[in-house]
């Protein structure tokens, strides 16, 4: 494999796979079920810490990834339960608080390495190409799963909750149960992404999972088109490669992402997916003689 693509491309693709997994995990909660989260990096972090602690303690990598999903989903369920009564802006603020709470708690825990974080996380032993393949496969599986969810009756019920949760109740939808399911699935997948991230970089600290990360991943969902699996995938690929292609963007990352989010909200609230659908529609109309 190293003969076909270089080390640099492999690490880039590895990061892309992890980022797409992470972005799609938020898309399940925010895009499909309509529950905004400004603290999604906390679950990414919870998974990263859980997996790193376990592999350092000698637990096999595969088991550690599963545990990362379980830990993140368990925290996600608790946060979800606590957030059931809040909506929209208040949910945004609550989840933002959860993000800060995560950082605050982790910084104070000596067992988690405090502000220094955890270093010398063991290599999963898959080789660079193998690990890249795993991360890309993870992104692919989550994308397929997301598409499946959208087509299932769970996705249908999610649509109704995202649209108008009071009305969802009067067609018999157990709104709290569905929201909790979205939180548990989305945060669990974020935990897997976090576990992959920790073993990719080998060293993690609380600031890797801060507010900026939460905003970045939300930007990917918004720019891609809230709810659109392929739109969010494209946005996550683009936004995770941009800083590598144009070094200067890295210095102005927040500015660029903020600007992009603003442009999307102002000019194409449906994101890339909306732009594409709009373009198709115009094309179709242009072809039809009126």
């Amino acid at each position: 494999m190293t003969g076909i693509i270089g080390n640099y491309e492999m690490s880039l693709l590895t990061m892309v796979g992890i980022t797409v997994t992470f972005a799609l995990s938020l898309n399940l909660i925010t895009g499909l079920c309509g529950q905004i989260s400004l603290g999604h990096a906390a679950f990414y972090g919870a998974g990263a810490y859980a997996a790193a602690m376990l592999t350092k303690a000698g637990v096999p990598f595969a088991l550690a990834l599963l545990a990362a999903a379980a830990v993140a989903a368990a925290i996600g369920l608790v946060v979800g339960l606590a957030s059931l009564r809040v909506r929209h802006d208040f949910l945004a603020i609550t989840t933002m608080g959860v993000g800060f709470l995560f950082i605050g708690i982790v910084r104070q825990q000596d067992a988690l390495g405090g502000t220094m974080g955890i270093s010398s996380i063991p290599d999963p032993g898959l080789g660079k190409a193998g690990f890249m393949a795993l991360c890309l496969a993870s992104a692919g599986v989550v994308a397929l799963f997301s598409l499946y969810v959208k087509r299932s009756w769970m996705g249908y019920a999610f649509d109704s909750i995202a649209d108008d949760e009071d009305t969802a109740r009067i067609v018999g939808i157990n709104v709290p149960a569905y929201k909790l399911a979205a939180f548990a699935i989305g945060t669990g997948i974020a935990g897997v992404a976090g576990g992959l991230y920790a073993h990719n970089v080998g060293i993690i600290d609380p600031d890797s999972f801060g507010f900026i990360e939460s905003i970045t991943v939300l930007a990917m969902v918004v720019i891609g088109g809230n709810g659109s699996v392929w739109g969010v995938t494209v946005a996550a690929v683009m936004l995770s490669m941009l800083p590598h292609w144009f070094q200067f963007i890295d210095n102005y990352k927040l500015l660029v992402y903020g600007g992009l989010v603003f442009a999307v909200m102002r000019f194409s609230p449906g994101g890339l997916a909306g732009l594409f659908a709009g373009g198709l529609e115009r094309l179709r109309r242009a072809r039809m003689p009126s």
Binding site: S152, W153, A157, G172
Partner: peptide, 21 residues
């Protein structure tokens, strides 16, 4: 149709394995 599928939307996980609309 969403309302008509009330038997399928009773519980989230059961709804996840239902596809036909």
């Amino acid at each position: 149709a969403l309302a008509a599928g009330y038997r399928k939307t009773g519980a989230p996980l059961a709804a996840l394995i239902q596809m036909r609309r």
